[in-house]
Design a protein around this nucleic acid. Structure first.
Lengths: 249, 249
DNA sequence: CGAACGGTTGACCAATATCAATTATAGTGG
DNA sequence: CCACTATAATTGATATTGGTCAACCGTTCG
């Protein structure tokens, strides 16, 4: 409850800190959502010393590209990213969207190259955790290893749910499930659960859900006509969350 | 080279050891594919002491069920398993198949309940790693933590590839991609890459790939008529692996 | 031996993709 | 700041892949 208070102004604080580029983990507004959760003070200091806070990425700019040498894991600091994997013929699949406090690059830990490409969806920034240093530091910080395991496991089980969507659900169910999941993530970050901006394009959403762009657009209008949501451009309002829930399958 | 020799008779050895139920990790034929890879001798002994080798599971028997308390991680010892997640209305998605040396339950690490259900596809056995003890032991064995991270990361990136299949590929491409992936996994386990048994039903394959059972059946016949594969029942031969590769998308 | 299950094959249909045209929105340079 | 252009989104008409329904065959197991 006191927690909710401290989460609410979360993103604004980070934005301020952006300018200074000096915010330590211990005073970062993302603390509760981020890697250092559960670390002791002295461990935090050790972690702080290896973290590099990177400049902003503009819309479309790449954080890393499939096939490049693995250098760092990243935690989103502000903005949003998407990752994609490609088939040999160039077809791409949007494999995930990433918001403040979330990890990018976990799927690369087992290789020395990134298997996916990460791009900023809007003006965004990250904290970079150089992989070699992270490995060294984490040996002496069990809680850090544990955080990594937890994050990976969470990511894995989220992907299993996405597999369920892609494999078994209708277009409408896919989209509604997706919107509800977004709503949850936004509210965890101190934003309204019912009114938020979609940082990704219709095309990105469609691709992510294995649909055609036009299908997504049509379903948006249909849901809007049924007064379940209100969309205009990137701005989305969930008007009847419970009714939506029943449409999620 | 010498490695291949030791892998080839791999499964037979495990089968023998099944009867004794006493095989230590250090002398297990799955060693190269399994968790203990890279552990020192003394660490192996510690690991051995927490591992419980479980009795066999018959076809269809559950290893654990969605919603049950998390007790153990499992490594397949012999046979094969599938995992499924369910929508509220009961629809299921087969989220993975698991062969000797592979982990089951990694998606549960972040919760205290399993998010998925695991069932044996044939007479199978596992090594169980009680979760609490695993956590204790792994604190003092960095290589073990590292193995877990690696496995999780690998699982995550495999799932991203599956998302690509489900989202972007045609029915035929999905199935061919799946068969090639199976082929790779079997050959890693010392079996022929071109001639193996499918432990799962057509329905399981179809569900896993987001297709109808009938579609899978039809594509099997089509590929067979094109002399790319030979199927009879569960037995599969890849007749033109390169030609198949080009059909995988 | 018969029932049950798993798999194959065929005919038909529907959901959603594709193609095409139009309208918003946003980014850019004067 | 506005006009212009490029990009994104919507909407409509049509096509197609793969799903559904149904009948049939083969194998396995009690």
């Amino acid at each position: 409850m006191g927690q909710a208070d401290s989460l609410l102004p979360l993103i604004k604080d980070v934005a301020k800190a952006e300018q200074a580029q000096t915010l330590a983990c211990q005073s970062c507004a993302l603390y509760r959502l981020c890697l250092p959760l559960g670390l002791h003070r002295e461990d935090l200091v050790a972690l702080d010393q290896i973290i590099r806070r990177r400049d902003s990425f503009r819309r479309g700019q790449r954080l890393f590209e499939s096939g490049c040498d693995l250098t760092s894991l990243y935690v989103v600091r502000s903005g949003a990213f998407k990752t994609t994997v490609s088939a040999k013929d160039g077809r791409e699949q949007v494999t995930g969207f990433y918001f403040p406090g979330e990890f990018i690059g976990l799927d690369a830990l087992h290789l020395n190259t990134y298997p996916s490409t990460a791009r900023a969806l809007e003006l965004s920034s990250v904290c970079a955790l150089p992989f070699d240093k992270l490995q060294m530091v984490s040996k002496s910080i069990p809680a850090l290893q544990h955080q990594l395991l937890t994050r990976l496991s969470r990511a894995l089980s989220d992907d299993k749910d996405l597999l369920l969507s892609l494999g078994q659900k209708s277009a409408e169910e896919k989209l509604v499930t997706f919107l509800i999941a977004l709503s949850t993530r936004f509210s965890e970050r101190g934003f309204s659960a019912y009114n938020f901006q979609l940082p990704m394009s219709r095309g990105d959403i469609a691709n992510h859900l294995g649909l055609a762009l036009e299908t997504v657009s049509r379903i948006f209008t249909r849901l809007q006509q049924a007064d379940l949501i209100a969309v205009q451009g990137k701005s989305l309002t969930l008007l009847q969350p419970e009714a939506l829930q029943t449409k999620a399958g």
